[in-house]
């Protein structure tokens, strides 16, 4: 029985090997007349569903610009856009196996991922910080020693705290929510005194909470994460087109306009305003567009 199971596992792996590499994305789009966009359901305001379950957001708008460029390049009159919801667990497999052509979500560009996929020039930069209740009086890492700190499963924020110079030698008691909403619930119900996560996500959770005035984002920047649109690796034709399209949008000021639309104005579905000004790091990244991984943003001094 045990041997059978091993054979099964081995054959599943073999199927993976046997699948030949997909042909160029542009050829595929030309042939099928459609392109598949990976979207997130709740990565506000980068990529999420509005009241009618339609994907909207900052990265969706940028991707729509890319799709226009594909249409022009292939001289197509119409191009059908298929929206495929993805999660942080399946987004990379779905891009590598050809299900999704372009992922428009909230994916951090890092070196490990560059082994599997390629990234468009960085269009958003988030800082890992913490959300606390104002009443707790917590202002920085050093006040968290011995206290429970929440984060989300599949993220490595607590390790970042330990790695940070001010966090060394301190004892953090980490608790993990199975998703961002659960992790925020831990802060809300006092299971944790702080929630460590990307600041844009924290801002979104706070704005959407019952008493937004109760919370604030404080403390040291634990990590800087370039966030970008993701596509298949080793497809220079498509990658070149995506790069050019994104660079054009950055140069023309379109990206600036979209940033104001999604981060500085009321957004659907409830009309809340994140009031999240552009960070210096993002301004830099837009000044000289690049696909540098997170590791280059966080060089230890």
């Amino acid at each position: 029985m045990k041997r059978n199971a091993l054979v099964l596992v081995a054959s599943i792996a073999a199927i993976g090997f046997a699948q030949s590499a997909t042909a160029g994305t542009l050829e595929k789009v030309q042939e099928s007349g459609s392109i598949t966009m990976g979207i997130r359901e709740s990565s506000k305001p980068l990529s999420y569903l509005d009241g009618d379950q339609k994907p909207i957001g900052y990265h969706i708008d940028i991707c729509n610009g890319i799709v226009e460029a594909v249409k022009v390049k292939l001289k197509l009159k119409t191009l059908k856009v298929v929206h495929q919801p993805v999660t942080s667990q399946n987004r990379i497999p779905l891009v590598t196996n050809g299900t999704v052509d372009i992922e428009c979500g909230s994916t951090t560009n890092n070196a490990a991922r560059q082994n599997q996929v390629a990234f468009a020039p960085t269009t958003f930069v988030s800082n890992v910080r913490m959300a606390v209740k104002k009443s707790s009086g917590i202002k920085g890492l050093s006040q968290l020693s011995g206290k429970p700190v929440a984060t989300t499963t599949g993220t490595t924020s607590v390790q970042l705290m330990r790695a940070h110079e001010k966090g060394q030698g301190l004892d953090f008691k980490e608790v993990y929510g199975k998703d961002h909403a659960d992790a925020f619930l831990m802060l809300e119900t006092d299971r944790a005194v702080a929630f460590v996560m990307d600041d844009n996500l924290l801002a979104g959770l706070i704005v959407g909470s019952k008493n937004p005035g109760e919370y604030e984002i404080v403390g040291e920047v634990l990590n800087v994460e370039p966030i970008a649109i993701m596509l298949r690796k080793d497809d220079p034709q498509f990658q070149g087109l995506v790069n050019a399209a994104v660079r054009d949008m950055i140069k023309s000021g379109e990206v600036d306009k979209l940033y104001k639309k999604w981060f500085m104005s009321p957004i659907p579905p409830k009309g809340e305003n994140l009031n999240f000004p552009m960070s210096e790091k993002l301004k830099e990244a837009l000044k000289s567009p690049n696909d540098n991984p997170a590791e280059q943003y966080n060089v230890k001094k």
Binding site: G16, Q19, A21, P93, N97, A112, N115, T156, Q159, R162
Partner: peptide, 18 residues
Amino acid sequence: MNYHWNWGIFFEQVKNGD
């Protein structure tokens, strides 16, 4: 499938730790 296989991953160090 363009998957980058690495069965030696189990013996590699995690990103922010020993």
